[in-house]
Every structure is written in C-alpha cells, then in structure tokens.
C-alpha cells in the first residue's frame, strides 16, 4: 500500500506536467509523421516505416529519463523529500515508487508509436507485440539513467543532461536516422559499445520477425540496464540520505 500510494503520487506528478506529455508522446509522433513525409517525397529508402518505427520508439523512451530525472531532482530540491524520509518508506519502497509509474508510461508511449506507424504503413502482426516486450529492458535502462541523473543533478542540470545530451546521443548513436555503416570508423565503434543501437536493432529484428537476431542485441541492453540500475539504486540511496542530513 505504501509503495502504491507513493507510485500513485509520482504518476500524477508526471502526467500533470504538460511538457512531459508534449515531449514524451507528441515529439516522437511528430518525428514519425515528418520523416515519413520526407520518405514519401524522395526516391531512395531513407526512412522505411519498418526500420523507422522501432528507432523512434527507442528515441521516445529517452524522454522517460528526462521525466524520472526531473521528478527526483525536484523532490530533492524541496522539503517534500524530508517529509518522505521521515515516513516509514524503505529504500526499496522509494525505488519501486519512482520506477513503477514510469514503466506503464514507457509501454503506452511505444504502443502509441506503433499505432501511428500502422497508419503510416506498418504491418500489424504478433511481431509488434514481441517488439513491445523487447523494448521493456530499454525502458528500464532509460528509467535507471533518469534515476541516476535525478539523484546526482539539479532539475536544471537534468534538463540539460537528459533533455538535450542524452536525447541527442540516442538520436545520433542509435542508427535511427542513418545507417551507422555510412559513417563507420570510431563513430560506429562508439555506437556499438553503447546500448542504444542494440535496443533499436533488437526491436527492428522483432518487427521484421528475425528472431535469431534479437537476443545478441538484447543482451547488450539488458547488461547495460542491470549495471546502470544497480548504480542508480546505490547512488540514489547514498545521495538522498545525505541530502536529508
């Protein structure tokens, strides 16, 4: 009950911020429409919906880091944190309370992305359901990045790091906008060392029905998610307790 009460409060805080809705849902949808419009007017295959939709779904998830980071950083900047710490909430209650409302938001965000993609020509089949499941580790990864950023930074800094830096990193290094082989070299090596391109490739493989290709990419994402989430939980506990002192 305690966790649910806290999660419910966090869900309301997140959903009542119009910027969250605009960036979390509106922006990825606008990009889908825009890039599909470009595709329909050029003779080469730049943004085929089967490749674009999973990429935009991952890009949209990067905004989840911004939401979670901002919420935690704002709580840290007010006396509301003291009230929370004085309550009988345990450390695991806090982590769950911040994480639980974001996971359904991330899934809904991906569903909306695929629904819009359907109207742009994406085939609807069981593979889309698989893609939604494949995107869950990526969603947890982005929630963890937000948890980490919110624990360490102020809300303004979170806006810069998660709202600008992370979203750009995901945009450029995920292979959503262009084939990484076109650039190659250190750029491709760096992109492959990060989880974003693997999240996109795993979701693309799921949409395409290339099941054998999913796991190798998904393992990258899961490994990153486990490491970042563990780090985020540790930093969150340490930082928030020191903030209350």
């Amino acid at each position: 009950m305690k966790v649910l009460a806290f999660a419910s409060r966090n869900r309301k805080e997140l959903l009542r911020d119009p910027l969250n809705l605009a960036f979390g849902i509106g922006f990825p949808v606008v990009l889908l429409l825009l890039l599909s419009a470009i595709q329909s007017n050029v003779p080469v295959s730049l943004f085929k919906i089967r490749s674009l939709a999973p990429g935009i779904a991952v890009f949209g998830l990067s905004f989840i880091s911004l939401f979670s980071g901002m919420l935690i950083a704002k709580d840290r900047s007010t006396s509301f944190l003291i009230r929370l710490f004085a309550s009988p909430l345990s450390a695991s209650n806090f982590i769950l309370g911040y994480t639980l409302p974001l996971l359904p938001m991330a899934i809904v965000q991906s569903i909306i992305c695929f629904i819009v993609s359907y109207f742009l020509g994406l085939s609807v089949n069981v593979n889309l359901l698989l893609a939604l499941i494949i995107l869950i580790p990526a969603a947890i990864l982005f929630i963890a990045i937000g948890l980490l950023a919110g624990s360490l930074l102020t809300d303004k800094q979170v806006g810069g790091v998660c709202g600008a830096l992370l979203t750009n990193l995901v945009a450029w290094l995920s292979g959503t906008w262009f084939d990484l082989n076109l650039v190659g070299g250190a750029f491709k090596t760096a992109a492959n060392a990060l989880p974003f391109v693997h999240a996109v490739d795993a979701a693309r493989a799921a949409v395409a029905g290339d099941y054998a290709l999913i796991l190798p990419h998904l393992l990258w994402v899961i490994a990153y998610a486990v490491v970042i989430l563990s780090l985020a939980i540790y930093v969150f506990n340490e930082k928030m307790r020191s903030d209350a002192k």
């Binding site: 309301k12 805080e13 007010t78 006396s79 509301f80 003291i82």
Partner: peptide, 10 residues
Amino acid sequence: PQETAVAPNL
C-alpha cells in the same frame, strides 16, 4: 518541515 513540503501538482 520548514518551507513548502507539499506535492505541487496534486
């Protein structure tokens, strides 16, 4: 606590 300690959007 000192200062405002309420959830602003609730």
